[in-house]
């Protein structure tokens, strides 16, 4: 520090020269800074999903074997995916609820594909802290509203997988998917 001050005093007369010299030093340091920042890019981007992980970002599910009232767990992006064949009773129960009374107001229609109201496809990840709720397997606890129940912190989901009771803030997420035929969907 002190030496720089001395140096500046020594050449204070040649104002022009000083400015040019300072400019070169500043330019050199700035270039070093830019270079340092550029190096950060590969160091940061390497943590993003790699090409092989991204390539497995879609999942096909065959619906033909799922009978009414049954649900299965598939895997989508390394997370559980709930595929549920709703019964008429379950659909009626879901429709009977006034969305305005819900924490995350949505109707069943908004959560299924038009004309395929019996197929409820959601992520099996509780929106509270990410546990896998029960209710998709045979004989599992479906909670007070007949949908899914998360045992970690006691969140209850209804037959449209909407949050009804407990700490979870949102309904179970509906991923993007399309019907590739009457009995098959492509998720992602």
């Amino acid at each position: 520090m002190a030496t720089e001050v001395q140096g500046t005093e020594a050449v204070a007369h040649e104002d022009e020269g000083v400015r040019r010299r300072d400019f070169i030093n500043i330019a050199a340091v700035s270039f070093a800074g830019v270079g340092g920042l550029a190096v950060l890019y590969p160091l940061i981007t390497q943590m993003n999903p790699s090409a092989d992980v991204l390539a497995q970002a879609t999942t096909e599910v065959d619906l033909s074997a799922i009978t009414e009232g049954q649900s299965i767990k598939a895997v989508f992006r390394s997370q559980p995916l709930f595929v549920r064949h709703l019964t008429a009773k379950e659909i009626a129960e879901a429709d009977a609820v006034d969305p305005a009374t819900l924490r995350d107001p949505q109707t069943l229609e908004q959560r299924v594909v038009d004309g395929k109201k019996q197929w409820l496809i959601t992520m099996g990840v509780c929106t509270h802290l990410g546990c896998v709720p029960l209710g998709a397997g045979e004989g599992e606890n479906k909670g007070e509203f007949g949908g899914y129940f998360c045992p970690c912190h006691g969140s209850h989901y209804d037959t449209a997988a909407r949050i009804r009771k407990g700490p979870a803030p949102k309904n179970l997420v509906v991923p993007e998917y399309t019907f590739t035929s009457d009995t098959a969907i492509l998720v992602g």
């Binding site: 070169i24 030093n25 330019a27 050199a28 340091v29 270039f31 070093a32 270079g35």
Partner: peptide
């Protein structure tokens, strides 16, 4: 950058 560093 190296030329600048040399000048500096």
């Amino acid at each position: 950058a190296t030329v600048l560093a040399y000048m500096s």
